[in-house]
Amino acid sequence: MGDVAKDLAAGTVGGVANLIVGHPFDTIKVKLQSQPTPAPGHLPKYAGAVDAVKQTIAAEGPRGLYKGMGAPLATVAAFNAVLFTVRGQMEALLRSEPGHPLTVKQQVVAGAGAGVAVSFLACPTELIKCRLQAQSALAEAAAASGVALPKGPIDVAKHVVREAGTKGLFKGLVPTMGREVPGNAVMFGVYEATKQYLAGGQDTSNLGRGSLILAGGLAGAAFWLSVYPTDVVKSVIQVDDYKKPRYSGSVDAFKKILAADGVKGLYKGFGPAMARSVPANAATFVAYEITRSALG
């Protein structure tokens, strides 16, 4: 099996692990990000992450925490295959000689390149996922227009295409790239730096699973710490109405979030995102490394 095929297989396994572990946290993050600013004197729909979990389970049962999972599950193979395969190919280009480990700086470059590639897959997938996860916030607008809310990923995709054409699936591409490119650069850089620190040098091949879990968890946390406000902008744009949008673009969304909620508005849902990042990314990297190693 060639290196590309190995990266494809290992990336897929890593992505599935990430999704199973992290999706409930992601659902709560999006619900908090997309809830509208309450009118003066009124309380927000969700008081916080714990309240969002309680309301979601009360209204939809535990399955509500996995709402929107169909879209990323259907594309997780392609997304993670591209992420790890492009990263692997960039590693090959940057490597001074076959088998020689890359420096942290080189891993940052490889991660950024992988981020560019996956943005075009992430954008439509994230749009469908976010619109499903945020349906409670969209319910009033749908009721007012007499339009029933879509019931699943395919239904959401059809609805978006009817509303805005195929290009509507790529709404929020700019902030998606603004998240994926620097986010993956930081994530892979931190992952490699942590592994080399724990190994005491560039040869990290003998690290145990505990070290990989630690490195993967720190890498995931670094991803969200570096790009979280961009993710908030992406989410509000992707759940915005197509015919009567509140935001004209990323800059407009950024300004309006600041005007309505201040800097804290750019960190709505930050708690669930960070709570998710450590176990989900630890699972991703460990699953990837174990699968890649098993394939030789």
Score class of each variant (00 low, 15 high):
D3G: 08
A9K: 02
A9Y: 01
T12C: 08
V13I: 12
V13F: 04
V13H: 06
G22M: 12
I28R: 06
S34N: 12
P38E: 11
G41D: 13
H42C: 08
Y46Q: 02
D51P: 10
T56G: 11
I57F: 07
A59E: 14
E60A: 13
P62S: 10
R63T: 15
A78C: 14
F79R: 06
A81P: 05
L83H: 14
T85E: 04
R87D: 07
R87P: 00
M90R: 00
M90A: 11
L93E: 04
L102V: 01
Q106E: 13
A114C: 05
A114K: 05
V116T: 04
V118H: 10
T125D: 08
T125I: 13
T125R: 05
L132Y: 13
A134D: 14
A137Y: 03
A139L: 07
E140M: 04
A148G: 11
K151A: 14
I154G: 01
V156N: 10
H159K: 07
R162V: 10
E163H: 09
L169G: 10
F170V: 06
M177T: 07
V181S: 08
G183K: 02
N184G: 04
N184Q: 12
M187F: 04
M187V: 02
Y197D: 02
G201D: 03
T204F: 02
L207I: 03
L207Y: 02
S211T: 03
L212Q: 12
I213Q: 01
I213N: 00
I213G: 01
A215F: 05
A221M: 14
A222P: 00
D231E: 09
V232M: 05
V232A: 03
V233S: 08
V236G: 06
I237A: 03
K244E: 10
P245H: 08
P245L: 09
P245T: 09
Y247M: 04
Y247L: 07
A253I: 11
L258F: 05
A259E: 11
A260V: 14
A260P: 13
G262T: 07
K264M: 08
K268Q: 07
G269I: 06
G271S: 10
V278Q: 09
P279I: 10
N281S: 12
T284R: 08
F285S: 04
A287L: 09
E289R: 01
E289P: 00
I290A: 06
S293F: 00
A294P: 05
